[in-house]
Write a protein that binds this DNA or RNA. Structure first.
Lengths: 231, 231, 231, 231
DNA sequence: CATGAATGAGAGTTCATTCAT
DNA sequence: GATGAATGAACTCTCATTCAT
């Protein structure tokens, strides 16, 4: 995949023989390209963190990456594509974080573990939250391509799956489970927004505590429902 | 039409009548200025509703106000300041909307009434939500003055007071009450974000239903706590 | 018409009284604006003559006009619009030139007079020919708006009307007359292209002489047809 | 596919057989280079047909040729030079087309046959017309070298020779013949411009018909002159 | 007070051409 | 010879803000 974005329609080179020097070179070039894409993404992240989404222009990104503005287009077709890549990668890290949260035996503990992991990721990485909001920000008519949007949505949904699975252990129907996970997701998003905007201070509250309380109440309620259903 | 509005505004300042000529002039000048600020804000709101936050340029606002671009700066120091004023006015309308919600007898109904009013205002006026997010959005290099920020915060808090009052009727301590209102506020914000960004569709859920459910659970829980405390 | 291109939606100022200072100011401002438009067009023409159509960038035009690039957009909405204005004005001069050609008594002389006037205008003003070709150059998908194109077409056609009128004096049907004027137009265009590109030298010919010969043959033929039709 | 073409082209140079090794190598290198130039020209023509003159970037040409952008510069010094080569080749095809037109017995028919062949080539291959105009177009800052220009002129003139020969059969002097062929050439160029730019529609005329009429009149007139000269 | 022309910086993007590998 | 990453200048166009009038 060392093909530049612009010249990607080229055919693969002819196979020669033996250890295939061509392949080796292609692989090396490939990895170099990937490395540079990574460096540009790092620069983009840095620019975005320093300057905000609006301020992080292609020029700013290029400068930070040590490139001329035009050079970036060899790696990413547009500014949007850079942000999509950044977000995709962010969601990957989020997923890893959630997957890494302990898989407690009891359903209640598992819900708390997984939901808190989701929450904590964004609480501890506020820039990733910015990134996550990028796609949402305002009414965005000219956004990403439809497929890319769908893919990012799917990635986001996947990070909530462990929580959904834990919830379903309470014996919920699929529909009820979806309602609960949506509601919980909304709750966490709201808390994150309050943290992010500093508005939580306005209430003199501590967000993690509020989430913990919310999760307690949620699991308690579900526990009650489950036992009454069993009766 | 715009011109005639401006002209009649000017006429309004023509009435002369008072104790000290200086004060009268100052007052008159003040009120005329306030009136014109108001007209500009109307224009800004219209522009912003039509064109969105990015699209509502100073030119667009000035055109709608019947002013030249430069004239605006006699009333507002910057684009940012206009938006802050708009937000203040938006919060005023929000407050009116919440205050207008029926004051049910039962605490549970009152919580539902007031909280739903808050929620519905933003659900039905997504542009006001945009406005609300605008100043909080991400990393803001050039923000508002500290006082302005505090004032807007206070206004926001005031719109939640009726809900807080209703909650306190369940016999909560002040601290518990604050925690509940914060939690509820976060929940609503989260749902609004999901609506606003279209992400709620991703879960196939209906936001008002989710809120109703949340309010049911909340009031039920508080009711349970209240009766057990009474016992 | 002192309204800038961008803010042209403004209403007219309120009428006051007497000689109407507002109107006077508006008129003066108007004429200043027209003057500046003219200066920009001059600069555009100069840029275009020096650098060719591709090379005459907005920057180049602005520099020559003594403006910053952005300032031009207060007078013309786009690069295309500048060229359209340039072409429109060129066609106006062409029309004046053709209309000013003597109105000979005999049809043959009138054809020669009017057609030669058309031809000579472009022969002596090769830059105007460039301009005329601008709209035609290559396959231009993104060109002028449809209305503008139609208007310029009409202007062009109007410059050929005197020739068409003279031709019709030979007793031609409307259809025959249109065929003759088209054919003659094509002939002149062809000769102009040969002059313009220097290709006429390749044949060692003198274009005005060739046109004169062509007109002689044309009028002679039409004269023969007319007399044989009369017999 | 492009690759394999290139590879087989390389193989073609593998045959070694000759008197002096140096010469053989030089010749071989030469022919291989010519072959590759041809392949690049094919790609350039394809790009240009698909994308137009503006759209056919070096990247697009290189991609179609199976080369990297930089490699092209080993065969052509600039984009301009590619287009010059393309034009030369286009003129070759034009010549073949004209030469292939039937050699009628009567002079009048031969004129019509050869002239129509010229005209039809460009009518049916509008991109070749674009190419033809490209180098002549307006004020050209960076033009061709003098020799190249002369060579292309000669090629163009050669395509008109059959028509000139047919005209001379009417008993014209060399000078008269040259005047007639120039005039006819101009006429056809004019018609082609009108077709090409869609301006012919403005007159509601059909170009081939106009040309046929023009040729009828031309040959009739020459026939008349010839017979009167014979008398 | 109001005008509106003008600035100046900046946006995203394209591309012929170069040159180290 | 060929690569293709990179340059650097260019493109059109937008906009908040300033300032002479």
């Amino acid at each position: 995949m060392n093909k530049s974005i612009r010249d990607s329609a080229r055919e693969a080179g002819a196979v020669v023989n033996g250890v295939r020097a061509d392949d080796a070179r292609a692989l090396r070039a490939d990895s170099v390209t990937q490395l540079r894409r990574g460096l540009i993404l790092d620069a983009a992240r840095a620019a975005f963190f320093e300057l905000g989404l609006e301020g992080a222009s292609m020029r700013a990104i290029a400068r930070r990456a040590g490139y001329s503005p035009g050079a970036i287009y060899g790696y990413f077709a547009s500014r949007e594509e850079i942000y999509a890549a950044l977000l995709g990668e962010s969601l990957l890290r989020l997923k890893a974080h959630v997957d890494g949260a302990p898989d407690a035996d009891h359903a209640a503990d598992r819900v708390k573990s997984k939901a808190s992991a989701f929450f904590d990721f964004y609480r501890q990485n506020p820039r990733d939250l910015d990134l996550g909001f990028y796609l949402f920000q305002g009414v965005r008519p000219t956004g990403l391509t439809r497929e890319l949007d769908a893919q990012l949505n799917a990635q986001l949904r996947a990070t909530l799956q462990p929580t959904a699975d834990a919830l379903s252990a309470f014996g919920l129907t699929a529909a009820a489970c979806e309602a609960e996970v949506t509601s919980l997701f909304a709750h966490m998003v709201g808390l994150l927004v309050l943290i992010h905007t500093g508005r939580i201070r306005m209430f003199g509250q501590h967000a993690p505590q509020l989430l913990a309380r919310h999760l307690d109440q949620l699991t308690e309620r579900l526990g009650r429902s489950a036992s009454s259903a069993a009766a």
